[in-house]
Simulated assay, not measured.
Amino acid sequence: MSHPLLTLTKEQKLHFEKEGYVIVKGLFSEQNLAEIDETFEEISRQTVPGYFEPDLHADGSDPLKRYPRVMHPHRFNETAKKYMLHQPVLEVLADLYEEEALAAQSMFYYKPPGSRGQALHQDNFYLQVEPGNCIAAWTAIDAADEENGGLLVVPKTNTLEIACPDVADAKESFTTHYVKPPKDEKAMPIIMERGDVLFFNGNLIHGSYRNKSKDRYRRAFICHYANESATHISNHYRPLYRQNGALVNLEINSNGGPCGDEFQNVYPH
């Protein structure tokens, strides 16, 4: 029996099921976005061991040394946690999952001008949500397009199995894994306005190009979620949270995945 939709139209839900992703507008007010701006501007000037470790005196040769991504900000910042559990986002996820979503991870990317991108990859390779899948909610804090390194997706690859990745080109990607799309499929840019949210399936192949702009950041607040009926997830994403903030401890997924156990401790996401 299908659940009544809270937020999405039937067309939006169908697009997610067929293509592996859907863009939803209007989930964040300008006031919400301003609060996110302010919070991560403040975080960018400090060091949080284990979560955000910038080189505050970097020479600028690699912009990501000064502005690396922030991992799991919800674990040390209440505003990040609040927006990871943002009700409008969780209502969309409930439509996509047809059950409650559990929040597993938050991240923030500054992606200053000149930053490398991220090679094509699949999220559930890392999260290992079973049974079911992870879904990402990728919120554009700045408008994102081809020039400033917006997201790329390979449509319809949500139906593929999780693949063991190849090695990425370190000159273009700050992460080491690369998943080659099927030969008939091409990565396409997703053009987003500030505040748009891209939801995509954990098997969908996606990534980003480098930021080729002179003066535009491409900030993004990105969270990953699991379906409530999941029983296992990779240890790095525990504990999970319900919308009301209650903790949920899924079992640790000790399955080596498609590469076997040598990839068990990778955590680039």
Rank of each mutant, 00 (worst) to 15 (best):
R242H: 10
P49I: 07
H121F: 03
F263N: 09
E17L: 14
H15V: 08
M188P: 03
R194S: 02
K156H: 12
G257L: 11
A137I: 04
R242S: 01
Y126P: 06
G20K: 10
S234E: 07
F16L: 11
P239A: 08
K10W: 08
L33Y: 06
K183I: 09
E17S: 04
C223T: 07
L56F: 03
D184G: 03
M71V: 08
E17K: 14
D215P: 04
L90Y: 05
L120G: 05
P113F: 00
T79A: 02
Y241N: 01
Y21I: 07
E185A: 11
M71W: 12
A187Q: 12
N124D: 15
G149F: 00
V89Q: 05
P258L: 02
F199Q: 02
L90S: 01
L5Q: 11
Y110G: 06
L247R: 15
S44Q: 01
T231Q: 14
L127S: 04
I36F: 03
L8T: 04
Y97N: 08
Y126N: 07
E100W: 06
L5I: 08
V48Q: 14
P88R: 13
A34W: 04
L33W: 10
V197K: 04
L90R: 02
D123F: 10
M1S: 11
P258F: 00
P113D: 01
N77Q: 09
Y109I: 15
P4H: 13
Y126V: 02
F263K: 14
I141Y: 11
D142E: 13
N227K: 14
N211Q: 13
Y109G: 07
Y97D: 00
A143P: 03
D62G: 00
T176N: 11
Y83A: 03
Y267F: 14
S254L: 14
L204E: 05
S234H: 12
L6Y: 05
K186G: 06
V266W: 09
A170P: 15
K25E: 11
E185F: 09
A137P: 05
P4Y: 01
Y67H: 14
